[in-house]
Write a protein that binds this DNA or RNA. Sequence first.
DNA 1: ATTACTATACCGTCCAGCCGGTATAGTAAC
DNA 2: GTTACTATACCGGCTGGACGGTATAGTAAT
Lengths: 188, 188
Amino acid sequence: MSRPPAAREAVLDAFERILLHDGERAATLDATAKAAGVSKGGLLYHFATRDALIDGLVARLDTLVEQDVQAIEAAPEGPIAYFVRSSVAMEHPLDRAVVAAARLAQGGNAAAGRAIRNARRSWLEAMRRHVADPTVALAITLIGDGLYYDSALHGDVDDLGVDAPRASEMDALVALLERLATEPPASE
Amino acid sequence: MSRPPAAREAVLDAFERILLHDGERAATLDATAKAAGVSKGGLLYHFATRDALIDGLVARLDTLVEQDVQAIEAAPEGPIAYFVRSSVAMEHPLDRAVVAAARLAQGGNAAAGRAIRNARRSWLEAMRRHVADPTVALAITLIGDGLYYDSALHGDVDDLGVDAPRASEMDALVALLERLATEPPASE
DNA sequence: ATTACTATACCGTCCAGCCGGTATAGTAAC
DNA sequence: GTTACTATACCGGCTGGACGGTATAGTAAT
């Protein structure tokens, strides 16, 4: 084992970045290699096919989701606040990986689809563990999905402006959901 | 006008269908023409460029959204139930157009992005008109987005199975949201 | 005669994947 | 401690096919 691979992670980062910013159509091998500062041959050394590249990103997502579920359990501000707020934080590696994988899943890639479904299931289960009313747990995860969807519509990180929830709206939303979670399951 | 155009709508339908089912990468001019049962020349007769095709779909979405907002106001089951339930009905022309446009928006198309933002704004405004608490209105539209996002992850119409909300869950969700909407704005 | 197409051939560009080559570093015989 | 070899990491040019778009000649409904 002679040289540590420098290109591998750089390629994965670049692929993710292009998927976020410009969509799947733009995420070609050439564009990815260029953005990673790697030759095309170098890219293909690590990922022999485009599908292998996708698999690499999916593997990264899987581990990040696992970590996130643990973070939800351990969050000092509580699981609901942590989950809802983290669904709009597009600087976090997890959120970037989720949106990138979602783009690939929508392009028909099976592995990416499986990874996204797995993530959603993990989150729903985590919420169910902390919220008595399963309907409230469902509502919370759906709101998380909605926030992801919105974030994903603005390729750019800046200008979340017009329709993305403002800070005060997010505060009110978190407060509403936490109130619902502590209330008795109420009328059925 | 000597002959009514038969291919135009067929092309738009096919383009939408491929976008839903296989993603933007698959929605090429050749594939669209073939799926519409139209020659490539015939497609290009109506839509001179790929962007023109997208504009056609965007225009269709705009009118459907306008109609939907009126339907929300007039819905006999109430605006909330109508809005939430219609966000998972992927057989409706509106929902198909929304998801198709979302795919294009994520690919970086500006017109599609504008149309999606316009739709979201229209729905949020409609909910605000019918729900006293603006935070509840926001939560409802986010849940709508989340349901769209989920639907969009299954390219297929069938097999919404595993993680899509079941009928009973949807009933409970609608009941929860309607309870929230009629309750006083509560603790602030 | 105008409109709405079909069918086919073609062009330049882009893309996925392949391949021959190179650079670097560790291994080990002598 | 130099020589010989191997493995890993990467470069960059190439090819065949697909894609967006153009062009043209012809057909059929109104």
